[in-house]
Design a binder for these strands. Sequence first.
DNA 1: AGACCGCTTGTAATTTTATTACAATGCACT
DNA 2: AGTGCATTGTAATAAAATTACAAGCGGTCT
Lengths: 289, 289
Amino acid sequence: MNMLENIRAQRERLSKSERKVADAILQAPQRAIHSSIAALAASAGVSEPTVNRFCRRMETRGFPDFKLHLAQSLASGTPWVSRSVDENDSVEAYTGKIFESAMACLDQVRQTLDMQTINRAVDWLSQARRITFFGLGASAVVAHDAMNKFLRFNVPVFYSDDIVVQRMNCINGGSGDVLVLISHTGRTRQMVELARLARDNDVMVIAITSPDSPLAQEAGLSLLPEVPEDTDVYIPMISRLAQLTLLDTLATGFILRRGPKFRENLKRVKEALRESRFDKGLFLPDNTQ
Amino acid sequence: MNMLENIRAQRERLSKSERKVADAILQAPQRAIHSSIAALAASAGVSEPTVNRFCRRMETRGFPDFKLHLAQSLASGTPWVSRSVDENDSVEAYTGKIFESAMACLDQVRQTLDMQTINRAVDWLSQARRITFFGLGASAVVAHDAMNKFLRFNVPVFYSDDIVVQRMNCINGGSGDVLVLISHTGRTRQMVELARLARDNDVMVIAITSPDSPLAQEAGLSLLPEVPEDTDVYIPMISRLAQLTLLDTLATGFILRRGPKFRENLKRVKEALRESRFDKGLFLPDNTQ
DNA sequence: AGACCGCTTGTAATTTTATTACAATGCACT
DNA sequence: AGTGCATTGTAATAAAATTACAAGCGGTCT
């Protein structure tokens, strides 16, 4: 578990003094792990027992144990916490914050994903007669990307961001079809209706959305990437990174499930495309990276 | 750097008792970091000062400091590395690998990005009369997403994945226009031609592509996210995560540059949309997260 | 408004833990 | 065997963390 992200997540629940401790640590995590409890208490402007209580609240045995956990979180190079962009931030500052927030988000999603559900989703997909990806707005982008990925496999794939086409597709769907619906909120009426329509026609519906949403309840299988709280108006849309990566995972699971013969085929396709780049005289779009 | 390796390397040079300490740690490093100096001394069969001297010899300030370093070494075992998916991997295994590779990629890009170029790109964008995003294949998805982001600001934006429309747009472009071209390889002929066309019409061209590519040379400004080597056929497309995040950064820079009045407006838009969700009786697509 | 309750925070005492100083031991070389 | 240096342990000291407890603050009920 990433301790820095954990601190940030719990920050709101803390009392006034404990929040001071949290802030002092988040502001200079590297210094925090090299400080004694007295030094940290001083720099946070609180008493030593307060720091100790803070550590216990973070589910550690005490201050030394807390430092150990924090050190492990910092070990991977950089502390990635979701931090809000400030209007006085320099380029370096906001770039760092955005990339770190993205990483923190991916980290959290990775840890909260239910592997069993992923496994079942891969089961469904690898046995599908036909796979369809739908989303609207920002999630349309994700659906589009998913189609690009699955296009490389020998399975019929479909994508559209036109709600009328989407409806027609669901109405004409049937047993053996798998429909993947992507919606960050899970509260977009059109998506919920598509799920209902599709299920009425025995289409298997996989939703990538947020927990407790109408869409999650309507779908046969729900993948629920839990992204950190929306801390900032200026850097939204981070959740689609998680969605994209999740779909990478499903595509990988798909290909592993389909066996070695199938993978051989993909390798050949890839190499054939690689030889047709700019410097070789032939040209192809980018979806072959 | 890596403390475990360090201990192993220095083991031969140590004295008899200190070697006992080294062995005790190497045998159960996880136990070691949760032990006190007394406990570790006992399990190694030596006295406490011996353990302390051992820590000093490892170039740390003392036992607590040593534990910190050791903890960091143990933590950095798993994360961050791009690891290839193996055909015998379990769901947990390949999910972990994919997410970690994604994070590693973002981390590397963050470290290799040129801030000055970002800054100039933001300059260009924030003074643009009109902004256009083009890409093909997987990069079309990124361009589409970029349009979604910039649509929320009060600047004319355009996107298309139709090469004919793209050409027409470039031919009709003029001074004050900014064109953002996205291509992972930078060797897609159409993209390079678009850049040339656009520049002939005094359009400012920003490329998001790979270094030393024809597109990078053709563009007025090139943002070059260096993604890790393509280690695996099964997890490609990681670079678009970097591109998306980079565009998040540009959008953030854009909004910061445009000043506070503008941000106020965005906040209002966002709140207005939030109130119109499923549970409130109104419905909107997802591009408002 | 005032008294009471519970939660938060700090002070001071206690305990645990780590470090230092120094003495004893072992080992090599004369 | 004896001297000198390095290694190790013992005991004292210092530092750090934890605990117990009391004061303070904010809220509610009478």
